[in-house]
Every structure is written in structure tokens, then in C-alpha cells.
Write a protein that binds this DNA or RNA. Structure first.
Lengths: 210, 210
DNA sequence: ATAAAAATCACACATTCGTGTGATTGATTA
DNA sequence: TAATCAATCACACGAATGTGTGATTTTTAT
């Protein structure tokens, strides 16, 4: 890890782009291999420059940053993409992560923190601004934290529920647990009563956020 | 934010517990209000001490740390819990977050980073060790994102799919769209072919991540 | 030791779901 | 204009699911 980190910037605002360029180029261990003003330009240059990290704005003319991430990651899965944007709304965050971004910083991040985050990114981390991380973490809380704990499911019921939620057929659950399918049906019947649902689909919807 | 941050430690290993206690007590702006060796002890002391932050080990005698988080958060939702453990397996991570923990650090975290993370926690962030954050972020990446957009669903099929994903029965979809249930079945049959699935549950699982 | 809870299996019935095949109508397009 | 596609409806069959009721065994808790 004593090689310079090759960075490519995608940012349509000229001033911001050049600011980032100077910051990176002027920092030991970091090398800015390109600074693009559009997603299209970046996609063209990436095969030639093969950066380690892409700093990606979301709001771009033409193709947006999130779709650009999809393109980059499908062609070069080893490239780490860090979103760098002013948007902190949930939709952008989760679309970005779903698209394959592994970091998400807000533009207000101070320069030193940005460089630190880039380093963490190439070292297998996923740096996020505080409020971003909180939103990400909170998505794990809702379903299981509110409804399920008070449903008072027994350990066995929890176990069967987990198979149910994975889409296993009753007979498959029975095979996996070495019990009769009738037993599976009995358990699921009780689970449904406790969770106040009537179908497997409703269970799935409870796992998600409605 | 000029008040001292009140911290409660739950950690069964005596040496680690005292080490943390000394670190916190010896740092300006941090105040260790209690250091407990078990979850039960913590639950008893919390109402008296009302900490801002709880540092929680997972592997504890008696009640484990994750269940302890559930108890704490249900009684005191304003208390922030940071897991502090040697375990970095996915199950512990996601159970902890589901239980309501908002931070997750590994024990190898250096003291300065730990204090920084506690500060970030009370400021609305969700500090995580690098490899933890990466695992969390990766759950949002969907391989299904490839198949869905290009599945070439017609507008009507998309519409019916949306009802399907909401858990509507076939007959309910038919009523909502003023069409015959047979038509619904035909559409769904084609949708399943295009999405390469065999059950409604598999569709839901495609919507989710894995 | 006894009561309660959890886990197991059984049977019957009705509903829902997924598949296969086929047909009609209207709109789009080559 | 002919071919294609989207949307509609129909029928039949089997698989899977959900419900109700009841029973036995094991484990846990009081």
C-alpha cells in the first residue's frame, strides 16, 4: 500500500472540480488521474486511466452520477466509488449504495477528512458522513425492533420464520429442519397469529419497511 | 454540547472494563458514570445514572449484549448504544443494529478513535469500524438491480407488479384495476417469466437485498 | 412435583397460486 | 397491409398455502 492512490473526479461544477483536483494532486500519496465534468466523459476515460477510486457527484448534466456508478461497477468491479454530493436524502443514498458505491460523503466534508476517507475506502472500509451513516443504520432498526420482539416468537418459530422469509416452500423447510411438513404448518400458523398476518407476503412486507 | 458526555460501560472482562473506564474518566468532556460486568447489572443501574451513551460488549454472562440493547432502547430510546466487541460476523452486526445500536466498533479501535466515535455518536452519527461499515453498505447492493430494469415489463405489467409486491391477492388486484382475475393471472404469469421467478415471494426477495 | 410452554405430528377443508393452452380486440410498427 | 405486441378473458389441473381442531411428547419454569 505504498503506491499512490489513483483518483478520478466526476464533478460538473468547475470550481469544485478544480478545488478537489488541487487538493488531491497536492497531497502525498494521492494522484488525480483525471477530472471530468460529466458521467459520459468519465466512462470514456476510465478504461485508459484505471483509477483506484472515483469521486462521484450525483447531479450531473446528461447521465446522473448514480447511473454512472452502475456503469462503472459493472465494467470494473474493483474500482471503489465514493459519492461526494450535497444531497443527504434517503433516496439518493440508498440508490447510490444499491448501484455499488461504497462510500458516501457530503461536500461539506473538510479536506483532511476527505483524504482520510479515500484511504479508508481503498483499505476496505466504507466511509460515510455521520448523518449518512445514521440513516443507513436506521434502516436496519425498524422491522425487527418494533413489531417482532413483542410478538414473542419462540426460538423455533424464529428459525422457521427465517426460512419462510427466504422463500422456502413448506416442504423445503421441513427437509432443512428434519421435521414433518405438518409441524411446519403448525408453527407457521402460530407465527401468523402472533404477527397478525394472513400470508407469507405480509410477513415479507413486515421485514421490509412496508 | 459543552456538557460532559455520560458514558456507561458493559463489559465482562475486568481488565478491558477498567481500561475503558480509565480512558474515559481521564479524558476531558467524557464522564464514565458506571462500569458494569453484566447486562443485568447495567439494566438496573441505567435508570439511576441515565447515561448518554452505552458501550456494549456482546459476549456476556447471562443476558447477551444484543438483547440488552433491546431492553435499553425500549425503555430509553434517547440513549445511544455503541457495540464494542471483537466479533465482526454479519449476524452479530445486523442483529445489533436491528436491536437499536447506532454504532459498532471493534475492540482493536485505538483510544483516540474511540473517543472520537463517541462524540460522533452523540452528534447524530453512526460510527463504525471500516470493515463493519463495508458489510453494512454491501447489503444494499443488489445483484437484482441488473435484471429488473431490463426485464422489459410493459407499463401494465409494472402496474400489476406493484400491487403484487404490496401483497394484494389476485382478486384484489382485479378489483383495484377493474379487470378480470384471469387477466391478472395472465399478466403475472408473463411477469414471472420475464423476471425468471416462480413465486410471489421470489419477487419480493428481488425487491429486497437477497 | 406440577403446571405451563414449546415442539412435534395428524387430518380435513377451502382458498390461493402457478402453469398451460387458447382466443379476441385494439394499437403500433415494419 | 401484414405482422407484432399489449391487454383482455376463459378453462382446467395440480401444487402450495392457510385454517381449524386435536393429540402426544419434551422441556422449562414455578
Amino acid at each position: 500500500m505504498d503506491r499512490e492512490i489513483k483518483i478520478l473526479i466526476v464533478e460538473d461544477d468547475h470550481a469544485v472540480r478544480e478545488g478537489l483536483n488541487m487538493l488531491i494532486s497536492g497531497s502525498r500519496g494521492f494522484n488525480c488521474v483525471a477530472a471530468c465534468a460529466s458521467a459520459e466523459e468519465a466512462l470514456k476515460i476510465i478504461p485508459e486511466t484505471l483509477p483506484d477510486v472515483v469521486l462521484m457527484d450525483i447531479n450531473l448534466p446528461g447521465m446522473n452520477g448514480i447511473d454512472c456508478v452502475v456503469c462503472i461497477r459493472s465494467a470494473h468491479p474493483e474500482i471503489q466509488v465514493m459519492m461526494l454530493t450535497v444531497f443527504d436524502n434517503s433516496e439518493d443514498i440508498f440508490k447510490s449504495l444499491a448501484a455499488g458505491a461504497t462510500g458516501y460523503l457530503l461536500k461539506k466534508t473538510p479536506p483532511a477528512k476527505l483524504l482520510e476517507a479515500i484511504t479508508e475506502l481503498v483499505n476496505g472500509g466504507s466511509p460515510m458522513s455521520g448523518e449518512i451513516a445514521r440513516k443507513v443504520v436506521q434502516t436496519f432498526m425498524k422491522p425487527s425492533a418494533y413489531q417482532f420482539p413483542d410478538a414473542n416468537l419462540t426460538p423455533r418459530e424464529e428459525e422457521i420464520l427465517s426460512y419462510l422469509a427466504k422463500g422456502y416452500l413448506y416442504k423445503e423447510i421441513a427437509n432443512a429442519l428434519f421435521i414433518n411438513i405438518e409441524t411446519v404448518r403448525t408453527h407457521i400458523h402460530k407465527i401468523y397469529q402472533k404477527l397478525q398476518v394472513r400470508t407469507r407476503t405480509e410477513v415479507l412486507l413486515k421485514f421490509m419497511n412496508r
